[in-house]
């Protein structure tokens, strides 16, 4: 038993972090709340795909790097820390889906970054199988050819053109978002959860991204608390600030520990792995939200501006908390009380 990353896993995370700091640094948006133009620079997207970020956990037999959900989890934690745009979550999940459905060509095309996939989170009841029907909240719409739709029973890819997506003005302005409706759309590929638990994988990876948000925004708060002097001392000296930072640290560490535990459980089929993943998503979303609130408050008026960085994390935490499953739906899964099916 060892729940700390091994040397190789640490190295993957460090390599990803170094690339992101260099190539996709986190910047304040100033007045530019909403991205204009492509969601992610085409060159950077291709480079990330070439680095294997979309195929990290895919078996080598399916053209992947051959690592597992654990390494993917560590990648997504870094993507969350860097509030990186781009359809990484649906891309990774869709490559797994295509591979599990036996369409290796599609899996490798998606993993190469050549075909982008959007993510459709069900709004109300959505039927997912050979045909897909229902309302969807669609993220990473920009330049996507397919939409990944999944729940705890199955997952499917459908053509985005068949989903009638209307783009909205999103709160998280770096991620292109819309509403879609699949009206008995025929799936390109689909797979049931017993064959490949795409939804549960997604919960772990979204949890990892929210963990990264919770950690990075805490670091901003701590740096500001060490720097900002009022009443003659750095404000982090005062317990009102210090203790809030400590609570934020407990939340972030808990999120990271649970994301790690859940990733190992899902990878190795240990215990109640689906529940572990739901718990990981719930605690990470909570930590991300609470830490964003704390970081804005600790930054004072500066925290309310779009020139300081906390707002970027506020937006991302808001989106992640509405990705794949809501807080209430996660809690109902955790207690074994599925309202949708009752």
């Amino acid at each position: 038993m060892d729940l700390m990353p091994n040397g190789e896993q640490d190295e993957i995370a460090a390599t990803v972090a170094a690339f992101l700091v260099d190539r996709v640094p986190v910047v304040g948006r100033g007045r530019e709340h909403v991205v204009s133009g492509p969601e992610i620079d085409a060159g950077i997207w291709t480079e990330c795909a070439e680095l294997g970020w979309l195929s990290l956990g895919l078996p080598e037999s399916a053209g992947g790097v051959g690592y597992s959900l654990v390494e993917e989890m560590m990648l997504f934690r870094e993507l969350g820390r860097g509030v990186v745009p781009g359809p990484f979550l649906p891309g990774v999940l869709a490559a797994h889906l295509a591979a599990a459905a036996g369409d290796l060509d599609l899996a490798s095309t998606i993993a190469s970054g050549a075909v982008k996939v959007a993510l459709g989170t069900p709004i109300g009841p959505v039927s997912i199988g050979a045909t897909v029907a229902g309302d969807l909240s669609v993220t990473h719409v920009d330049d996507a050819a397919l939409v990944l739709v999944c729940d705890d029973r199955s997952a499917a890819l459908v053509s985005i053109d068949s989903c009638d997506v209307d783009q909205i003005d999103p709160v998280e302005g770096s991620i292109t978002t819309g509403h879609g409706r699949a009206d008995q759309v025929r799936a390109t590929v689909h797979v049931d959860a017993a064959t490949e638990p795409i939804f549960v994988r997604g919960l772990v990876l979204a949890a990892a991204a929210a963990t990264g948000v919770a950690e990075a925004v805490l670091e901003l708060a701590v740096a500001h608390a060490c720097e900002r002097v009022q009443f003659g001392k750095p404000i982090g000296t005062y317990q009102a600030i210090k203790h809030r930072c400590s609570d934020m640290k407990v939340g972030a560490d808990g999120a990271n520990a649970q994301a790690s535990y859940a990733a190992v459980c899902v990878r190795d089929g240990i215990g109640a792995w689906a529940t572990e993943a739901a718990i990981a998503k719930y605690v990470a979303d909570e930590a991300a939200r609470l830490n964003c609130e704390g970081a804005v408050q600790i930054h004072g008026a500066m925290g309310f501006t779009s020139e300081a960085l906390p707002h970027r994390y506020v937006y991302r935490a808001h989106l992640l908390g509405r990705t794949l499953a809501s807080r209430a739906a996660l809690l109902d899964r955790i207690i074994g009380r599925d309202m949708a099916r009752a």
Binding site: L3, Q258, D332, I335
Partner: peptide, 27 residues
């Protein structure tokens, strides 16, 4: 139901934190 679920999530998370702490302390 949701307060109970949140409690279950929190104790499960503490277990994971303890496993991580034990792993770290061992090293």
């Amino acid at each position: 139901a949701r307060r109970l679920a949140a409690l279950k999530a929190e104790i499960t998370t503490l277990r994971s934190m303890a496993y991580r702490a034990i792993s770290r302390n061992r090293r």
